[in-house]
Design a protein around this nucleic acid. Structure first.
Length: 281
DNA sequence: GCCGAATACTTGCAGTGAGC
DNA sequence: GCTCACTGCAAGTATTCGGC
């Protein structure tokens, strides 16, 4: 019997008369297991007759990873979920196997737990978070994954936000608040260091030490999130959006946007528009 | 914990060209 | 004509490292 999957699937095994040794059966069993891991994440029944080719990459891109980490650490669960949704959509489109979905879920969950532990949240609260991560192992469809990720990320970000707000790190909490509210202005490390009576070099190192990310990474993450929102939900020109999110120059905005998302602002808007029209129509 | 100097990186400007 | 993408270059800014 497929012990690990006994609660989720029912398997009937017919043994060919050609198999005489236990080792042969064992090999067939492991082959079958690898096939089940390659099954598509769909709710309808599937007929699996052999191995199939799977998408090579099922993780966040390096830029998405940086943004996910920045959003997680600053307690922005909505943006974290957006990135997860994008990744799950991509995996669905590429017909990733259920094993790849599990691997992706495990890697995200362990990263979330790592950062919550690094923030020195009380162990009892971390234990309750781990319940959500265990829930990821029981997901049967992409809707399940979205739901469990939502619960996990909302709880984790809430813990991280309250940790900063609990005045254990009052300075970093204030800094993140300024960055999140004044991203549209010409916000520099010099401005912040003057505001908090520190040198810019010390402040730079302090932000990196406390959050794991640089000042630039934080600002970029916040600005790009807002830019995506404006591109998707408004008819403002790219130039207007670049100014609204704090770039004085559209060239810098275009360059940064492409670096972070992999596509230009115009292409992003077009793609979002195509997706929304195909969903509504 | 904090600072100064060197280095690395980002930004803004100017210019060009493609597409509508 | 307008918007957008792209490039090279110079200037400005952020990061890192060694030291106090």
């Amino acid at each position: 019997m497929l012990e690990a999957e006994k609660d989720q699937i029912l398997v009937s095994i017919a043994v060919s008369g050609d198999i005489h040794q236990v080792s042969e059966f064992s090999r067939a069993y492991h082959e079958l297991r690898s096939w089940t891991a390659q099954a598509k994440l769909v709710e309808e029944a599937q007929l699996i007759t052999g191995s199939r080719s799977l998408p090579a990459s099922v993780s966040l891109s390096p830029a998405q990873e940086r943004e996910f980490t920045a959003s997680l650490q600053s307690g922005q669960d909505a943006r974290c979920l957006q990135l997860i949704d994008q990744a799950l959509d991509f995996m669905l489109r590429k017909e990733a196997g259920i094993g790849q979905f599990r691997f992706f879920a495990d890697s995200i969950a362990s990263r979330v737990i790592y950062f919550v532990e690094a923030a020195q949240v009380e162990p009892t609260k971390i234990q309750s978070l781990k319940q959500w991560t265990r829930g990821l192992q029981d997901c049967q469809c992409v809707t399940d994954y979205r739901q469990v990720f939502r619960q996990l990320l909302e709880a984790s970000c809430s813990l991280l936000r309250s940790k900063w707000d609990a005045r254990e790190e009052p300075l970093i909490s204030k800094l993140l608040k300024v960055m999140q509210t004044q991203y549209a202005e010409d916000l520099s490390l010099d401005y912040l260091s003057a505001k908090f009576n520190l040198t810019s070099t010390y402040l730079s190192a302090y932000i990196k030490d406390k959050t794991g990310l640089n000042f630039s990474d934080h600002m970029q993450g916040i600005r790009m999130e807002k830019a995506r929102e404006l591109l998707a939900c408004t008819s403002l020109t790219v130039n207007e959006i670049s100014q609204q999110v704090g770039y004085l120059n559209i060239t810098s905005f275009n360059r940064t946007f492409k670096k972070v998302t992999g596509i230009t602002p115009g292409a992003y808007r077009k793609r979002h528009w195509l997706q929304s029209t195909s969903q509504s129509g």
